[in-house]
Design a protein around this nucleic acid. Structure first.
Lengths: 351, 351
DNA sequence: CGATCTTGTACTATCGTTTGTACACCCACA
DNA sequence: TGTGGGTGTACAAACGATAGTACAAGATCG
């Protein structure tokens, strides 16, 4: 008895079903869950009787026992920086839905981008015998990925890539380039980039794509206007303040993440600058609030839900012995009021 | 062999440790994980030898086997409407952290507030032999809770309450009252309430607390200015539009959720109304972006992280045979620019 | 110095399921 | 009527751990 008051209902096991249906446990198992080895199937009549017993008694298979016996848990683990980041939460929703469709369950854990946490959480998941891992917080710090490879643990990266490992990501370089083209078109010259954490390929690639296109246009961004920092609201505020302290305010800011952009909005507001009039601001990810802000935020939409789904597909393919190709999903620029205006000196083509 | 290329490293089991240390499996188990029954402990020397073997061979306990034998999985399941809601994600972070501290692991699932999903996800978790459930999407629809009670499954509600079941919630009635007092003080008379989903106690209680205090001040809110709807950005936009269509715009709006409030911002903006000047807006939850918006959003802060932690404490207490009291956490009003002004006719005491 | 107590370890059953193999039965055929 | 090939079912052994109990060796006592 586990509880002081209520007695947990006794589990209904295969043995109960077998007794009720007048067959052996073996037959019950095969009638309910199919025949695997070279064995022969129960007769239709027997199977029907067993199924009836199972339904009547309310049988449900014990996943622990099944997993122990089959050495497959049909459980996938996912590591994320943190789930309060709606981008990762969205990816996880995709993962969960796709896993369910494929007959798997999922567990998820926050690692806060800390290599020790990553290692620890992965270990716990492996103790629970997950069949594979989906890594949403990939970075080249720590040796977790090499370790997983060495141990033969199947995994795929999602959202962030790390060279040499299978991954499902958005085309961040292209996304950054789209933003650069948009801001060039509006006539901006003095821009800043809030580039996110240096260990995350998302921010790195978005910034790189932007800067590449920018210098291809013959313009430069001085180092003090490319600031790395956390991907959240506080990080954006902090990074924007760094830029504003370093010199004259830019006329346009590219934040590689919508929440970073919103934090930047706070810092700009405090500095007396109006987003959408004095300064253009572009984020990345198109989270649900971006379109509804008092000044709607321009951003790059990445198919995050699909990213999660594809990651599961890839992982399942690996589990089935395949060697799937990495997946690169296309981004889409969404121009809104925060950047849909020209710099003061150039013609104002929008609103 | 599970993979095409890599062979998963053979699991190190207790048997390997026992062989390596020259003891029986029993002794190895007791040396590593402690003595439970009336048995005697291994000698210090033996225990040390076993631990050394375990460390050298890289042993880690198989949770499936342990769970099967002990009939305890040390796994807690949590049901949430959806994880992309940062409020629930924050609560889950608290749950995860507290569970870990208490020696439990967690799994979480989205139910989209759909009774069928709730039932299905709970069933899956019970198949995985979770020791208990934390219900973040409680409602009086469906008979899941009664069913769990009948089956003796330990659970606690969090965030939302349902009469007759243990719960850890914020004091939503008081929170709503605080908002009413704030808006009364600023001289508002024509207000609207975006009240969230009718089946969720959070929105219901917040709205009730507000309306109670409001009518105690001798003022009324006509039915067409109390609109129920989803808790997200789109729902807020929709509900706000309903209000605006129904009559002259209110001078103040209480949205029972920050995201609903942000959606309302969009609708107000489209109607040519400026939040923080033409209309006051107050949300609920104090999510991270609220303070950084171009017009910072007034809101009520609820200790969501702590809510998750306390829910785990309660559940663990129940698992240990206790009958803990429900927990009610205090909210705090945070006045920001979106509502920190008086109505046009009254003196503008701020900014 | 033999009987008793203490201490450490091993044996064995068990959790609920899957799976290789053995067995019993039935029918057809020679 | 005996032999052979299907066909359906049961037996028994795992998977990796825990727990009750039995047993062996050393310490302690009269």
């Amino acid at each position: 008895m586990r509880q002081g008051v209520t007695v947990p209902a006794a589990r209904v096991t295969l043995r109960d079903i077998a007794r009720d249906a007048g067959v052996s446990v073996t037959t019950a198992s095969r009638a309910l869950h199919g025949v695997t080895g070279g064995a022969r199937a129960p007769s239709a009549a027997t199977a029907a009787r067993v199924r009836a017993s199972a339904a009547r008694l309310g049988y449900s298979r014990d996943q622990l026992a099944t997993g122990l016996r089959t050495r497959r848990s049909r459980l996938l683990g996912m590591l994320v920086p943190r789930l309060t980041d709606p981008v990762l939460a969205t990816i996880y929703e995709g993962v969960e839905a796709a896993a369910r469709d494929a007959g798997y369950r999922t567990v998820v854990a926050n690692t806060f981008d800390d290599p020790d946490e990553q290692r620890a959480r992965a270990a716990v998941m492996l103790d629970h015998r997950v069949d594979g891992l989906i890594i949403g917080d990939g970075s080249d710090r720590g040796d977790l990925l090499a370790d997983l490879d060495r141990r033969g643990v199947p995994f795929v990266l999602v959202s962030r890539r790390v060279d040499g490992h299978p991954a499902v990501i958005g085309d961040d370089v292209t996304g950054g380039r789209l933003v650069a083209e948009h801001l060039l078109e509006r006539g901006h010259e003095r821009v800043a980039v809030l580039a996110g954490e240096p260990y995350a390929s998302t921010g790195r690639d978005r910034a790189a794509g932007f800067l590449e296109r920018w210098s291809a246009a013959g313009r430069t961004v001085p180092a003090e206007r490319v600031v790395h920092g956390p991907f959240d609201v506080a990080g954006g505020r902090w990074a924007m303040q760094r830029v504003l302290e370093a010199g004259p305010p830019p006329t346009a800011v590219f934040a590689v993440n919508d929440f970073t952009a919103i934090g930047a909005m706070g810092a700009l507001r405090d500095a007396g600058l109006r987003v959408g009039r004095d300064v253009a601001l572009v984020g990345y990810n198109d989270v649900s609030i971006s379109a509804e802000l008092p000044v709607p935020l321009s951003t790059v939409a990445a198919p995050n839900d699909e990213m999660g789904r594809r990651a599961v597909e890839l992982l399942v393919e690996i589990l089935d012995g395949g060697r799937p190709d990495p997946v690169l999903l296309s981004p889409r620029l969404r121009v809104r009021a925060s950047s849909a205006f020209g710099v003061p000196s150039s013609p104002d083509r929008y609103r």
